[in-house]
Design a protein around this nucleic acid. Sequence first.
DNA 1: TCTTGACCTGTTATGATATTACATACATAG
DNA 2: CTATGTATGTAATATCATAACAGGTCAAGA
Lengths: 169, 169
Amino acid sequence: MPAPQDCPGCATPDLAFAAHDHAHCTADALARAEALTAAAGARLTPVRRRVLEILLEEHRALGAYDVLSRLAQDGYGNQPPVAYRALEFLVDQGLAHRIQRLNAFTACVHPGEDHAPAFLICRSCHAVAEAPAAQARAALDSAAAQSGFLVERATIEALGLCPTCRGQA
Amino acid sequence: MPAPQDCPGCATPDLAFAAHDHAHCTADALARAEALTAAAGARLTPVRRRVLEILLEEHRALGAYDVLSRLAQDGYGNQPPVAYRALEFLVDQGLAHRIQRLNAFTACVHPGEDHAPAFLICRSCHAVAEAPAAQARAALDSAAAQSGFLVERATIEALGLCPTCRGQA
DNA sequence: TCTTGACCTGTTATGATATTACATACATAG
DNA sequence: CTATGTATGTAATATCATAACAGGTCAAGA
């Protein structure tokens, strides 16, 4: 088995959007997933493994219900928790990412001004502040440019503790 | 009316989480909203104005249904589109932000490694790449630190065009 | 004045995403 | 072999979001 860096695939930023031996990356990733879960004392069961395969097969983000319908085709349970639980496991194990939203709105504190906001969301009191993120945005633009990707809109959110709640903890 | 920078409130990053004359910021923001919508030839109708007030009153992000239930208390319609439409208007006018996520999952391309991913999501072909965003993350951390906010988890997403789709456009 | 057309609001219905609660199966330590 | 913890299956329901259409308001122009 080649070392990870030998795989000329998805994990290499410049090649992420380019054609590459995707089957190779997939096999490689599955093998590493087996090793990592074993090392963590967790079990990469058939459903979980299949969900990871499904995610790896696609070069895009899948909704939980997309995953679920593919699982159902393979004879697994087709109720939402089946997919959500396997996905949660993979995220916990660092094998997948959840691209998430808050489903919420805040008033803009800089209306009428051109600005690149980042949102600081306190997980304790749920306060939200809008911080200036021009630098972070610039860094993102330049990282994207490495892959030839053109950023049109960016979402930068931080979940953590506000000063007040930090003081109380 | 004081100039915006005279308002010692929400819009000042260092003070965003600190105690301040919030009523002042609110009044100020509403006045500016009136001016901005008028200048844009748009109408800040009672529902829309009320929704902005509701968002401004809270120092946190509200779900559309939260907004809706407060609207209903004031005698406005209590069907989801009432809130969604007003919120959409405010976002279009730059008076509010929508904090959103994709509700989707991708396989991690760097499992087992400590990394700060940014997601590059092509709006045309829906491909998703995971780009290294250590710099953007560092910039975010430092912007947050200005307000005394401690970042635990960050979500950095870019919506735009991948190289392939750019070529086709 | 009347009409027209643009835009705003309300309502019904439905789609899409996510979780709770509980029942069953299964692996493995003792 | 059995008890325990963990994984999976299922039903029901909660939460978030949009499509489609009906009616109201208001201002510009005939």
